[in-house]
Write a protein that binds this DNA or RNA. Structure first.
Lengths: 342, 342
DNA sequence: ACGATGTATTTAAACGTTTGTTGATGAGAG
DNA sequence: CTCTCATCAACAAACGTTTAAATACATCGT
């Protein structure tokens, strides 16, 4: 149906291979013929068939992007469009396409990833999450297929390229902020304990408390889903305590919204009664009431670096595994306030 | 590198073509050989090469998904992950892959779409937006390439398959809700006038006013970006009027947040001073303060139907253009309240 | 005027499939 | 015991590229 390299060749009066070399701008072809062939291509409206090219070169110029299972409603999180924007812009610049993959369970995702990899559909994969004992990660790792994780690998850290923030440090600093505002009873609300990001943020939180000589209280720790219901549950647990916290470190902006919301039902207001700080600085963090004091983790840049890093690895497989840390920045807004000493 | 159909053939002692037919479960192959071949495939860990297959069958089992330019920060909108979830689930069931495409301008997107189409990378395309005089739409239409629009085509409505809500009716009903609460000065805040969705919602709003015998006032109409700054601007314009509205119909939940936020800076509260209603029923609508009264447009289903419809068209090109209307449902929450007559 | 050198192009094989056509084998009919 | 007809499997061409190797043709030093 389409016009092929042969048609162009015939029309320009050259061999197909010559057309191919013109396409690749091979110096072995004289400028004169190049011009002639290019004209023929234009006249006929020629466009190369990517499949044929992939078949022989066994490179697809495509990278696979794997989202977490939509069972993790994490997908609702504006994090994804933003990180995709970063990936997509770079991919476009480097002339790569994006093959997307989601699923509603780890199984379907693994299946989809296998299809991508075994079917020769992609040159490399970017994982948009990182969880403990993840079979997708294991699969890619064993197959020695090029991939990059956004987040921190739970195993083989040194041999898996990844792009991450210094979540420990970020958590430490933002917890420190709460402490410096006079809070001493500070709770932590995190996502699933299987997620690397939760663990890091928790550890930073703990280390800040420790450094300030504050006790680490087990009952101030809540792990729950990144969901409204999660936020509700967390608030319920924390505020039935005889000495509930006055400050909260929350692992995700979206959860913060749920918390603010639930707190309000309890007749508690942010930041007058409770101060909260969270992570991500999603678009929303700025427009909610109150605007959230949060850690800007530079989501867009996470995507950008992941994509660049993967393409490097794809182009030169001897490229070593990299660890790229994207800087964060605390955005001081109004969800955290000075604690009136009572 | 990989194990090919020939390796399997050799191992099973048959011809490559036989292996291929076993793959396709062709009845011309006897059960006995099928079994033998299948065993060989399993033993060798065979996986078909998709590119080779695409090359000869000129079908890629892939559908292209085109997002709006990220210059429209619309991308920040949780709409996209949700619609993607719908598309992706169906695609997975039907064994299709998703090739994603964004760009920061109409040009880059068009370029990317051309790469998809000309390069034989996709069998069909889903457009996640619909705007006036869109060159991507024009391109696909002229090329007679299978595609489906989520939203309403601005031209050739009857020959372009699309999945949409009855936005006119939805706007009419939700505006009616405001009217029935006693509001008579009702403003409309919409997105770009180029977007079909804005136009429909505007038209429903107007028709509700008309039907209630209320005047349609030009100064109560604001068109702005789907952004916080947009929300700000809108509020500024509306509330410098001598008779500002008491109710607002807002074309998107996210804008609503901006509006609530800005209103607050003016010392006005929702719903005590101003009632607002909006569209989409994004995850957030429920957890904000106040929870938004909004139209649930069933985003997930939009994706599901778009994907199904496209695959039908791809499989049978004689399939006629379809118009699929996904039902909406108004969620009554607390951002709209009775207007105290003053 | 000669082979040597180099440049510009062509030839042909390969990539891993699918699929129309041909060929072999065996069973049943005459 | 041959002939016909199924049934199953093999052969081979095609899909649109890339690329190593071969070839044609000037150009050059001698």
């Amino acid at each position: 149906m389409g016009v092929t390299i042969k048609d162009v060749a015939k029309s320009a009066g050259v061999a197909p291979s010559t057309v191919s070399r013109v396409l690749a701008d091979n110096p072995r072809i004289s400028p004169a013929t190049k011009k002639r062939v290019r004209k023929a291509m234009k006249d006929l409206g020629y466009h190369p068939n990517v499949n044929a090219r992939s078949l022989v070169s066994s490179s697809t110029q495509t990278i696979g992007v794997v989202m977490p299972s939509s069972a993790d409603k994490a997908l609702q999180n504006p994090f994804f469009p933003e990180v995709l924007r970063g990936i997509s812009n770079i991919a476009h610049d480097l002339e790569y396409s994006l093959l997307l993959s989601t699923g509603d369970s780890e199984d379907t995702i693994l299946e989809a990833v296998k299809r991508m990899v075994y079917g020769n559909r992609v040159d490399g994969v970017i994982l948009l999450y990182s969880r403990l004992r993840d079979r997708v990660t294991e699969f890619l790792y064993e197959k020695e297929f090029p991939f990059v994780i956004i987040g921190k690998p739970s195993e083989n850290m040194d041999s898996i390229s990844h792009v991450d923030n210094d979540n420990v440090q970020a958590a430490k600093e933002i917890t420190g902020h709460l402490i410096s505002l006079g809070h001493s009873r500070i709770g932590f609300i995190g996502g699933s304990k299987d997620l690397a990001v939760t663990l890091d943020r928790l550890s930073g939180y703990q280390s800040a408390l420790q450094q300030a000589g504050l006790p680490i209280q087990e009952e101030y720790l809540v792990h729950t889903e990144f969901l409204k219901s999660g936020g509700r549950k967390a608030v319920h647990e924390l505020f039935k305590l005889s000495q509930p916290p006055t400050g909260l470190v929350i692992a995700d902006d979206l959860m913060s919204l749920g918390v603010v919301n639930m707190l309000e039902e309890f007749g508690l207001y942010v930041p007058e009664d409770i101060s909260i700080v969270s992570f991500n600085d999603v678009y929303l963090a700025e427009i909610t009431r109150p605007p959230l004091t949060t850690v800007d983790i530079n989501i867009y840049e996470l995507g950008v670096h992941a994509c660049k890093c993967l393409v490097e690895k794809v182009k030169d497989s001897s490229e070593p595994a990299k660890r790229i840390i994207v800087p964060f920045k605390i955005k001081y807004r109004s969800s955290a306030a000075k604690r009136e000493q009572t």
